[in-house]
Design a protein around this nucleic acid. Structure first.
Lengths: 343, 343
DNA sequence: TTGTATGCGTTATCAT
DNA sequence: ATGATAACGCATACAA
């Protein structure tokens, strides 16, 4: 049986409310008693009961602000956040806002506005930018916890990051490309925008680490093209067609970003689906469809819904129990998904 | 805010203890009042508070008997079960026993013995045998819930099954074999024992469904050998060496059972690691080591620890809240693991 | 400074 | 048949 406040109080010969004051570092206890009680607490290894605390907090409503970027991942992350709120025993009010990708000003403005109004915590899918980092630091300074989801800002004072390990995903993708191509041949890499690294943290990491992995582990694979998509569908389609024409013996395409469907379409229309191995990220419907048609061989999923779920869980654990997460980085597993992985 | 007993009592104009009696179908309430209260309960969609109930149950100790088979998977499943017990707010006493694989008499005896002594629930990794099914049915009849883990007995009255979806794993393995070999060439299948299907449910399923998948999706892949390992290391090693000699253009080996390390060793010693693609199951240390050496391409994991964890969680949810699982089959995801998936 | 009382939701026992 | 009450562990306003 777990040790309770009552047991500690008995052992210390004081009342349970005194123990409570010691526990929460509240005034109203003499130094002598405080020291004695503290020692007994340590000795017995007191762990507060979640059930008791939960019951106590029942009345309170929690107000969580969720700021996400308007990208493919958004609805999936949001779904997880709402699910966690529904499953929670507490009354959680979610205030959700979103801003466009790379619209740093807008996100920064929303952050500052949120800091003015009062809320209990912020879940943020951030743009990777210095201004956002500064805003986070100021908000945390005010005592409002911030959790980053899907993309991180490492140097900031956020409570923790919940999401994928970008490098790990890239290594797994690299391994899959090696296995699929037999470890040799020409490969192309498609990223959103090479230059604006700072605004698309994951895409940049996926590109960089994939290249490093291939160089080290599959020296016979040559990355013959680095294509930028600019997340523009028509442009990406055209570029892919051009690629296929110029490199008739292409064996692999690695896609770190969106617009996967038009890449698949281009490969299919060129009649090269059987020869060109495609590895992508996430498990959006259009990607699943292309896997179903055997155009995409595999995709690296990062369970976006679970990311949302976990971020809300961690937030509530902090707000209710005051418990900070063990790790500053809560990585969600990268899963290799093939056609048969899907239900 | 969630609706509480108190709110229902107020609305019905009765005392909360009366509502409680209606809720638990206990006597001491007139039919008229009962009907009225029940209607309000339904209307308001009452859901009991976990925290309140937990607090109420705090004193009680739960006694769970765990009966596992002495196979590779055992310690991992056990770890998950213990983890769930530790994390639980309740006082759970685990009584663990094990029996050898296919020793049906022993397992049956332990089951019956457990039924005599009193316990709150049984978590069972069963032999696939009619006698075990009968024993389960009798125990459940007595009011003791049984949860099967890792391997199931479908026709029995167990509360639910927690574990892998054998067919799904086989399909994923089949897909991987197709992708790795480029969809053609000679492949060998290694199972524990073809004849005794009934005692090794998963291995039989993996073999059967893999063959069906390959036939349908990769007609150019030929399964040229069906090897039995009998879980005998020396024998399996010899058989693999023989296989490699007899089939010089072998492209793949699919292993559904144990003894994976000696298969890898044989392939390595024959200098064929680069040509022969190996797909196996689970992520035991020896398998990870072979992946690290690029001998095994990938393995299909079924998160054994999670299986144990979930089975205990479901058991406690049933015992504490009386909640039966939504599904009779709680499938744990099959994960494709490559070298870089491992931490 | 220290102790008392109350309430959170549920359940079980006891009194009317 | 119905209501009252205490208990579980924790937190806190309030009384001593």
């Amino acid at each position: 049986m777990r040790v309770t406040l009552k047991q500690i109080a008995e052992k210390a010969g004081v009342h349970i409310s005194t123990v409570d004051k010691v526990l929460h570092n509240r005034p109203g206890v003499s130094d002598a008693v405080r020291a004695n009680v503290q020692q007994i607490i340590d000795e017995l290894g007191y762990q507060p009961s979640k059930a008791g605390r939960t019951l106590q907090r029942m009345g309170k409503q929690y107000h969580i602000v969720v700021l996400l970027l308007n990208v493919d991942a958004k609805p999936y992350i949001m779904e997880g956040i709402r699910k966690a709120a529904d499953e929670s025993v507490f009354d959680i009010r979610i205030e959700a806002h979103s801003s466009d990708f790379q619209d740093v000003e807008h996100q920064e403005q929303m952050l500052r506005q949120t800091a003015e109004s009062s809320c209990d915590g912020i879940i943020l899918y951030p743009n990777y930018d210095r201004r956002i980092r500064t805003a986070i630091d100021e908000i945390v300074e005010k005592g409002i916890p911030v959790i980053t989801v899907n993309s991180d800002i490492r140097e900031s004072s956020r409570l923790c990051y919940v999401g994928q390990n970008g490098a790990r995903g890239a290594y797994i993708a690299g391994r899959m490309m090696g296995l699929l191509t037999g470890g040799s041949g020409k490969t192309a890499v498609i990223t959103s925008a090479i230059s604006s690294e700072n605004c698309d943290y994951h895409v940049a990491t996926r590109k960089r680490e994939f290249a490093a992995f291939i160089k080290k582990n599959y020296p016979d694979i040559r990355i013959v093209r680095d294509i930028e998509s600019f997340e523009n569908r028509q442009y990406t389609y055209d570029q892919t067609r051009k690629l296929l024409e110029e490199v008739p013996d292409l064996k692999g395409i690695y896609i770190t970003c969106g617009c996967v469907d038009v890449v698949g379409k281009a490969v299919q229309e060129a009649g090269r689906a059987a020869d060109v191995h495609i590895v992508s990220f996430e498990d959006y419907p259009e990607i699943l469809e292309l896997m179903d048609q055997n155009v995409i061989d595999c995709t690296i999923g990062s369970d976006l819904t679970d990311q949302g779920l976990r971020s809300m869980q961690i937030m509530m654990e902090y707000l209710v129990d005051g418990k900070k997460p063990d790790q500053k980085m809560m990585y969600i597993d990268s899963q290799i998904l093939v056609r048969e992985s899907i239900v």
